[in-house]
Design a protein around this nucleic acid. Structure first.
Lengths: 151, 151
DNA sequence: GTCTCTAATGCAACGAGTCGCAATAAGGAA
DNA sequence: TTCCTTATTGCGACTCGTTGCATTAGAGAC
C-alpha cells in the first residue's frame, strides 16, 4: 500500500497523468514481488478493470521502466518479465541447457559498473541482469555426451 | 573463403546436414563481418537462392548460435542482430537516450566471467554483451532538463 | 546407383509486442 | 463548475520471430 502510493507519486512528480489503467498496473505490480509476464499482468489487471487494452498495459510498463520503477528483463523464456525495482539489485544466471535460474548478488556486478563509469563515463543500468551460460551440472553432462556426437 | 570452409566443417562435425539453405546463410555471414539483422541476411541469401523460406533462415541462425559460430544480440533496435563469432570477443555500451553505441574490450568482462566460474561453477556466455545505460553526454543533458519537469 | 531413415524445409497459422490514428478524458486554468 | 489543451487510450493492422505438421531431400549403407 505504501509502495503503491510511492509509485503514484513518482508518476505524478514526473509530469505524467494518473489514469485508472496506469493505476491498476501499478497496483498489480506492487502486490506481486516476483517476476510477472505482460500476459499475467494483463490478466490480473482485468480482474479489477475488465476491458483494459493490452497496448495500455505495454505502454504503462514501458513508462514505469523509463522512470526506473520497474525492471524489464528477457529471462530467455520467449517473453519479457517485469518486476518492481528492488533494493538491493539482484541478477540471474540462466542455464541455456536446463533453464535453471540462480539469483546472484549485485556485488558481483558492482565492480563492472564502476569500471564503466570510470573508463567511459557511462552510467550502466545494471539493475537486473540476465547472464546466460551453462551451469555446473550441464557442463559435466555435456562432456559425457560429446563422445556420441563424434560420428 | 577459408572462414566459410571452417564453418561448413564445424557444421558437419557436429552431425548436422549441409543443405543449400544453411550453406547460403553461412556464406552471407562469412562475407559480412559486421552485425546483420535477420531481414538483411534473408535479403542477401535470396540474391543467390531466391525462394528461401524465412523459417529456414531463422532455424539456421539458431543452429549456428547453438554451435557457437554466431552471436545473436539484442542491441535495443527492436530486432535481433547476428554476427560471426569473433576473437577476441567484444561488447557494446548502448545509450538508451541517444542510441549511441560504444564498442568495449572483452577484458572488462573477463573478471566477471572468472568470478562466476569460481563462485558458482557457472560458465557464462560473455561473448557479445549489450549493456544499456546512459552515456556521458546524455547524463549532463539530463541534469539540465530535470529542472523543467518539476511542475 | 538405389534404398532408407530421419533431419530439415516450406508453409500457414500463431503469439508477443508495436504503431498510427481517431476518440477520449486528465487535470490545470478561468 | 465548465472549458481547453494535449496526453493517453482503444483499436486494428502490422512486424518479427516461432511452431506444428506434411513433404522433401541429405547422406550413410548396401
Amino acid at each position: 500500500m505504501t509502495r503503491h502510493v510511492e509509485l503514484v507519486q513518482a508518476l505524478r512528480r514526473s509530469g505524467h497523468r494518473l489514469t485508472p489503467q496506469r493505476e491498476s498496473v501499478l497496483t498489480v505490480m506492487a502486490e506481486n514481488a516476483q517476476h510477472l509476464t505482460a500476459e499475467e499482468i494483463l490478466a490480473r489487471v482485468r480482474a479489477r478493470y475488465p476491458y483494459l487494452n493490452k497496448s495500455a498495459v505495454y505502454r504503462a510498463l514501458a513508462l514505469l521502466t523509463e522512470l526506473g520503477l520497474v525492471n524489464q528483463t528477457d529471462l530467455g523464456r520467449g517473453r519479457v518479465e517485469y518486476e518492481l525495482h528492488r533494493h538491493p539489485h539482484h541478477h540471474h544466471l540462466i542455464c541455456r541447457r536446463c533453464q535453471q535460474m540462480t539469483q546472484i548478488d549485485h556485488a558481483l556486478l558492482a565492480t563492472l559498473g564502476e569500471k564503466l563509469a570510470r573508463d567511459f563515463g557511462f552510467q550502466a543500468d545494471l539493475d537486473h541482469f540476465a547472464i546466460f551460460g551453462t551451469c555446473k551440472k550441464c557442463q559435466t553432462r555435456a562432456s559425457k555426451h560429446s563422445k556420441r556426437h563424434s560420428h
